[in-house]
Simulated assay, not measured.
Amino acid sequence: MQTAMLLAYLLAIDDGETTFALGRRLASQIVIVLVYLAPSIIAQRYQHPRQPAILMLNMALGWTIVGWVAALIWALNGRRQE
């Protein structure tokens, strides 16, 4: 019942300002996730030999600044030289 009422409320709100705010919020959340996963994305992009370990470190301790920076440094240090 509550779900139906929430859906009816959301459908009733059809002004551009609310839609823009929701879109902006979704876009900002996507950016936050991409920044959070940046060390893992970099490790995958450069085919780091320890990519699974970097992903595990990023997921386990990436929420701390120290863990995220450590994963980023590790991902950047293992880049293959071309």
Rank of each mutant, 00 (worst) to 15 (best):
L10C: 09
I73W: 10
R24F: 12
I32L: 13
I42G: 04
H48C: 02
T3W: 11
N58Y: 00
L76N: 06
E17W: 13
Y36E: 04
P39C: 01
L72E: 05
V69G: 08
A38S: 15
A70C: 08
R80T: 11
F20C: 07
L61G: 00
I65N: 07
M5C: 05
P49L: 03
G23A: 08
G23F: 10
G62W: 06
M59S: 03
S40F: 00
A8W: 05
L22F: 15
Q29N: 09
L55Q: 00
N77R: 13
T19P: 03
N77Q: 05
P52N: 01
R50M: 01
I32F: 11
A21R: 09
Q51M: 02
D15S: 14
E17A: 12
L11D: 15
L55E: 00
Q44W: 12
I73H: 06
R50D: 04
V35S: 03
W74T: 03
Q51H: 05
R45P: 02
N58L: 03
L61Q: 02
L6Y: 06
W63E: 07
A27E: 07
I30K: 10
E17P: 03
T18V: 09
S28E: 08
M1N: 08
P39I: 02
I13W: 12
Q2N: 07
Y9P: 00
L34Y: 03
L22V: 14
A8C: 05
R45F: 04
A8N: 12
V66E: 11
P39G: 01
T18I: 11
M1T: 14
M5F: 11
M5W: 08
L72M: 12
R80C: 05
A43S: 13
A4D: 12
L72F: 14
I54R: 02
L11F: 13
G16F: 08
Q44E: 11
L57V: 02
P39N: 04
L11M: 11
I42W: 06
I42M: 11
L6F: 08
L61E: 05
A53T: 03
Q47A: 13
P52G: 03
L55F: 02
I30C: 10
T3S: 13
G62F: 01
Q81I: 10
A21N: 11
L10G: 10
R79W: 11
A27W: 06
L6C: 04
R25M: 14
D15H: 13
L26Y: 14
A60S: 01
R25F: 14
L11Q: 13
N58T: 04
M1A: 14
L7E: 15
T64M: 05
Q51V: 04
L10F: 12
R50A: 03
V69T: 15
W68L: 02
A21V: 12
V35M: 06
L55Y: 01
T3E: 15
P49R: 01
I30R: 09
M1H: 13
L26N: 10
I65S: 09
R80E: 13
G62N: 02
R50H: 04
A21L: 09
M5E: 13
A70D: 01
V35T: 05
S28M: 11
W68M: 11
L7H: 07
M59K: 01
L10S: 07
L72T: 06
L57P: 00
G67T: 02
G67A: 06
D14E: 08
A38N: 04
I32C: 07
I54M: 00
G16K: 05
A60V: 05
G67L: 03
D14K: 12
A70E: 04
L7S: 15
A70P: 04
E17V: 14
L6H: 04
Q44I: 09
